[in-house]
Write a protein that binds this DNA or RNA. Structure first.
Length: 181
DNA sequence: GCCTCGATTGACT
DNA sequence: GTCAATCGAGGCA
């Protein structure tokens, strides 16, 4: 079943941990979430919301469950899900997926066997671009479906940030073969 | 309006 | 291991 909006309306770290193992669907493709990162708004120098809302980052103040796609380095889309209460900034970055359905389509889109082991790779494999930005993960076209809780959650410092990378806000399923490198 | 830099990737040495 | 690609957002004049 599709996760209800109240799932997202909680502490960003809690949502990031509980998203592990859940199923992300987009069109005919789907995958299991195996790696996430939490981004707060205020007090988090690594977050786009750090300096208050801007035309791009204001989505983080939107209602929980909103899809936030971010274009980076001229060629890469990153997928986030808005968390916390409406009007409070927060988001979870999806960093890696384990392919479940539509693997052939993903492979064709990616042109590589490395399907979803990185934040920009998984958006390309799932066909996600800025078009899906601002849509609602409780309605589609991108949806998150419930799954049994996973055991063996690990955490570490965040990756790829010039600021704020020292905080333990990255979470992943221990031992998964589909984590980002 | 102009300039700098980024929640990355993939190709090349 | 090192480095360039590539373009929009955000900061500043």
């Amino acid at each position: 079943m599709i996760l209800p909006r109240k799932f997202y309306a909680r502490d960003t770290t809690t949502v990031a941990k509980e998203l592990l193992g859940k199923e992300l669907r987009c069109g005919s493709c789907s995958g299991r979430i195996v790696e996430t990162e939490a981004y707060y708004g205020l007090g988090d120098p690594g977050s786009h919301a750090f300096n208050g809302p801007t035309p791009r980052s204001k989505v983080m103040w939107e209602k929980p469950g909103t899809v936030y796609t971010y274009f980076c380095y001229g060629a890469h889309w990153l997928l986030n899900l808005v968390t916390e209460a409406h009007g409070k900034p927060g988001a979870v970055l999806i960093r890696a997926l384990e392919p479940l359905h539509g693997e052939g389509v993903m492979r064709r889109r990616r042109g590589s066997a490395q399907l979803c082991n990185g934040p920009a790779k998984l958006t390309q494999a799932m066909g996600i671009t800025g078009k899906q930005g601002g849509s609602d993960a409780t309605k589609g076209p991108i949806t998150i479906h419930g799954a049994p809780p996973v055991r063996g959650i690990g955490s570490s410092g965040r990756v790829g940030l010039s600021k704020g990378g020292d905080r333990q806000l990255r979470f992943f399923i221990k031992g998964s073969a589909f984590l980002s490198k």
